[in-house]
């Protein structure tokens, strides 16, 4: 165990934990838009920056990546930290003026949009937090989506922006998206869902008869686990 101070509170944390993990366990909330417990941290959104003191020097670090250390003093709301956080949110608000989630977060943190930043007009709500891409690769294991281009032109898409052959329609990317960018539409009857431009036929639960998962997803799980598709055709509520 290591001892550290976060916002003047003495805290004990496990060695190897990140500052964010230690803070969260002690009820200290550090805002973030790109970290998720089932994913390795990426440090992309920069909202979770905090100020740490080592000796006489202080520096601004990413709390989702920075490991706790004995005697560390951390400030999660210092002026320097708030300057970065304000800029990050103002930049994201200008990038995705349509995102309700961002607006709410800014309101919570008392941050106003910067009037000098002309809002982007492409209606994208993607903040490039990378959670969808990482989930698709690391959690689902299919790599159906990825990034393309770089810098301001970077975006998340399927290869060649065409229907992805490897997508299984699981929708994990849409569930994890924090800004409401990835859209997944399901028909009224629930027999089909559309995501990333492709429509997937849904399978019914053999117990309750409700549509519950795309056929492609069950086939994929079956291939991975060796369990026959028919045995997988039971929804979570009936299992």
């Amino acid at each position: 165990m290591v001892n550290l101070t976060i916002d003047n509170r003495k805290i004990e944390a496990e060695a190897g934990q990140t500052i964010m993990e230690a803070a969260r366990e002690n009820g200290i909330v550090i805002p973030t838009l790109c970290s998720h417990e089932s994913l390795e941290p990426s440090g992309a959104c920069r909202l979770c920056v905090v100020e740490v003191e080592h000796g006489k020097r202080t520096s601004v670090v990413t709390s989702c990546l920075y490991p706790v250390a004995e005697g560390l003093t951390v400030k999660t709301k210092s002026e320097r930290v708030m300057d970065v956080r304000r800029l990050v949110l103002q930049l994201l608000l200008a990038r995705c003026p349509e995102s309700q989630q961002l607006k709410e977060m800014a309101e919570d943190l008392g941050i106003e949009p910067e009037p000098r930043f002309t809002p982007d007009k492409d209606n994208s709500k993607c903040i490039l937090c990378r959670m969808c891409v990482r989930t698709c690769e690391k959690v689902v294991g299919v790599c159906a989506i990825g990034f393309s281009y770089r810098g301001a032109e970077k975006n998340v898409c399927t290869p060649f922006k065409e229907d992805s052959v490897s997508c299984i329609g699981c929708g994990a990317c849409a569930y994890v998206c924090p800004s409401g960018h990835i859209e997944m539409e399901t028909t009224e009857s629930g027999d089909a869902r559309t995501i990333w431009g492709r429509t997937f036929k849904m399978k019914t639960c053999k117990v309750c008869g409700r549509y519950f998962a795309p056929e492609d997803q069950l086939v994929y799980i079956s291939q991975k686990t060796g369990v026959p598709v028919e045995d997988l055709a039971v929804c979570t509520s009936c299992r």
Binding site: E137, C143, A144, I145, G146, F147, S148, Y149, R150, T158, P159, F160, S164, S166
Partner: peptide, 12 residues
């Protein structure tokens, strides 16, 4: 290498 990764590298 997944095609999405190849596409990522090509456009990067």
């Amino acid at each position: 290498v997944p095609i999405s990764r190849v596409y990522e590298v090509v456009t990067f």
